[in-house]
């Protein structure tokens, strides 16, 4: 008897569509192929403990978007769920209208710096070359052209002269820039970065911001997990407020309000003060 239920569902969805106000953002089953990243109804749980609930989100193409939320809000998990690194309990993720496994080359990922062993015996150039591996594929060797691509990427983050260094001899900020260069070497269309600004020096922060702006100029879409509320209005176009579920998302000017931040961070007033301060500073500028 359950076979008939599908049609009922479809008709209800069609009815729902008709009720949708004109001009609203596309939602639900529609995944326009030009949308770089579309997340629908995604729930993720670790060991039965829920981390993300019912996330619905379409990334804005060609924009720099900050993912903001308190600790444990599931920001890193959201990126990992997009990359199929953690299993989704439910939901659907599409990259340019297709599942991730068919679009691997178009997505570059910058993991958190602590996620790897920086004592590993590889040079900075070796690490950056790994960004080309998706294009190279299984069993084929790395060619000189790939190494040139990697060197160019290192140059863009200002580390060309460190190419031959073993990675443990780089400072924390330089290591972060190596990760960024690795993502650049992939020449992707969608960039997912997990806290690239975490505990870096001023030079690295400037270098990362420059790279982000260059990516935007070239029409790439970038999502960055970000902790520093003060710099959100300065660095980013859009913001996604996340606390286990999507609280709000959209242009920074509309969404990055004290009310929305209160809904994201709950009663953690110190953070709210910081945010209010940031907003005031943003208005003054």
């Amino acid at each position: 008897m359950w076979s008939s239920l599908g049609s009922g569902r479809e008709s209800a969805r069609a009815a729902a569509k008709q009720r949708e106000p004109a001009g609203a953002l596309p939602h639900g089953s529609e995944h326009p192929p030009d949308c770089p990243l579309s997340i629908h109804d995604t729930t993720v749980a670790y060991h039965r403990k829920p981390v993300l609930w019912d996330v619905d989100y379409d990334a804005a193409a060609g924009k720099l978007t900050a993912i903001v939320g308190p600790n444990g809000a599931g920001k890193s998990t959201l990126l990992k769920a997009v990359l199929d690194l953690v299993p989704r309990a439910s939901g659907r993720v599409t990259i340019f209208g297709e599942p991730y496994r068919r679009q691997r080359e178009r997505v570059a990922y910058v993991p958190q710096r602590e996620s790897v062993d920086w004592d590993f015996p590889v040079s900075a150039l070796d690490v950056v070359t790994m960004g080309c591996y998706a294009k190279i594929g299984w069993l084929r060797p790395v060619t000189r052209a790939h190494r040139r691509t990697a060197l160019e990427a290192l140059e863009r983050v200002g580390l060309a002269e460190y190419a031959g260094r073993q990675i443990s001899q780089l400072s924390g900020g330089q290591q972060q820039r190596v990760f960024l260069a690795r993502a650049l070497a992939q020449h992707a269309d969608l960039y997912l970065m997990d806290e690239p600004f975490a505990s870096v020096d001023a030079a690295t922060e400037r270098a990362i911001v420059d790279v982000l702006r260059e990516l935007r100029r070239n029409g790439r879409t970038v999502l960055v997990v970000h902790h520093d509320l003060q710099t959100v209005p300065e660095y980013f176009d859009n913001v996604l407020l996340l606390n286990m579920r999507v609280v709000a998302h959209g242009p920074v000017g509309e969404i990055f309000t004290p009310e929305n931040l209160a809904r994201t961070y709950g009663g953690r007033l110190t953070l709210l003060d910081a945010a209010a301060h940031a907003l005031k500073r943003g208005d003054g500028a």
Partner: peptide, 18 residues
């Protein structure tokens, strides 16, 4: 209550609430 509305309310996939 229409089943379709129920499905949408909870994050159920096809056949899940069966």
């Amino acid at each position: 209550a229409p089943l379709a509305a129920l499905r949408r309310l909870r994050s159920w996939g096809a056949g899940q609430p069966g």
